[in-house]
Amino acid sequence: MPDSSMVPREVTQDLRTLIADAGISAQADLVARILATGVGLGLDDADRLDLKITSAALTEMRAAFRLFAPYRNVPKVTIFGSARTKPDDALYRAASDVARALAERGWMVVTGAGPGIMQAAAEGAGSQQSIGVSIRLPFEEKPNAVVAEADNVVAMKYFFTRKLMLVKESHGFVCVPGGFGTLDEMFELLTLQQTGKADPTPIVLLDRAGGTFWAGLRRFADEELIPSGVISADDFDRVLITDSVTAAADEITEFWRNYDSLRWVGKRLVLRLRAEPTDAEVDELNERFGGLVLDGRIEKSGPLRPERDDVDKLALPRLVMTYDQFQVGALFHLIRAVNRLGTAPAGPVGAR
């Protein structure tokens, strides 16, 4: 609840009454916190620009949350790329083809709703399996016709709210060569993964056949970034660089073959799986990845108490370990090993 030292007690009580009168019962404490923060901004004498930014951001996020809500249980992939890529470019065809391949596997495709690669991906997936999160710019006045046709689009004023929605809902990412905007989005993805601020997800850097765009990035990392110590040697292990549409689509879907999701319970990492590993498979995982465990070993487990309290995916089998959080990059290797277990069924990811 709101900090009473910032918002008068009688105001917080009025907010609770207002929320109840509006008929809100679910998550009422969080709704009250949001309202109290708005009151707090007024008490802080925030200037008009600060209030306009806050108001617009909340308005945009609400609109985006409502757009995505009906598709909460549908796996999604976000495809990033340049708005300047022309339809006769091999990259345009690659983006369209990978979007089509993933749509055929039951995935929805999320894009920035603009022209170029964004339109190519929407065309490949089709209007019913595309979602657009557009940005209002002087030279990109409206979303492309594909996402507009199904009205699966929301417009944003701020890049930071747009990037939040392009990343928050997706189970995988495909980056096609582009300019500053594409590189900004790609580096933010890598930063979120490197720092553990986002759950592990597959990231594909897709190029045209024989292209060198992403290979040049890998070379720069190998020759400059890693030797200088500013990134770890395994930071690029979570990325697939390819010029194959099939390999790109497989990387996205196979990441979810057996791995479903993770949760931290105190210092313990819980991996939720689609199929329970055998004792021999768990022993093999301990032999390969025991160095990632700070105490004990990787163990099979039922839901832990906080998971039971939250009714959090109780039907799924689990692996539990005291994981070394400084080895986030290596977690991708463990997940890929889990996906190769002999009992793992094939199939798309469900709700996370």
Rank of each mutant, 00 (worst) to 15 (best):
P8C: 06
P8R: 13
E10Q: 15
Q13G: 07
D14R: 10
R16L: 04
T17R: 13
I19Y: 07
I24P: 00
A26R: 10
A28C: 05
A28T: 13
A36P: 03
T37K: 14
G38A: 12
G40T: 01
D45C: 09
D47R: 08
R48G: 04
I53H: 15
T59W: 08
A63Y: 09
F65Q: 11
R66Q: 14
L67Y: 01
K76C: 14
V77K: 04
I79E: 02
I79M: 04
S82I: 01
R84V: 09
T85H: 01
K86N: 00
K86Q: 06
D88C: 01
D89N: 14
L91Q: 13
A95G: 15
S96F: 02
D97A: 15
V98W: 08
A101W: 06
E104S: 15
V110K: 04
T111P: 15
A113P: 07
G116Q: 04
I117L: 11
Q128T: 05
I135T: 06
N144S: 02
V147F: 11
A148C: 03
A155I: 02
F160E: 00
R162G: 12
M165Y: 12
E169R: 05
E169L: 08
H171C: 08
H171Q: 15
F173P: 01
V174C: 05
D184V: 03
E185V: 07
M186Y: 13
E188V: 10
Q193N: 13
D199L: 06
P202Q: 08
I203D: 01
G216A: 02
R218Q: 09
E223P: 01
A233D: 11
D234V: 04
D235A: 10
D237F: 03
R238L: 11
V239Q: 03
T242C: 00
D243S: 06
A247M: 04
A247R: 14
I252M: 08
T253K: 06
N258M: 07
S261R: 13
L262D: 08
R272F: 04
R274M: 05
A275T: 02
E276Q: 11
E281I: 06
V282E: 12
N286V: 02
L292F: 12
D295F: 09
D295L: 07
D295I: 05
R297K: 13
I298M: 06
K300I: 03
G302Y: 06
P306W: 07
E307M: 15
D312T: 02
L314N: 04
A315N: 10
P317S: 11
V320L: 04
Y323L: 01
Q327G: 03
V328W: 10
A330L: 08
F332S: 09
H333S: 15
H333G: 15
T343G: 14
A344T: 09
A344D: 10
G347N: 09
R352A: 14
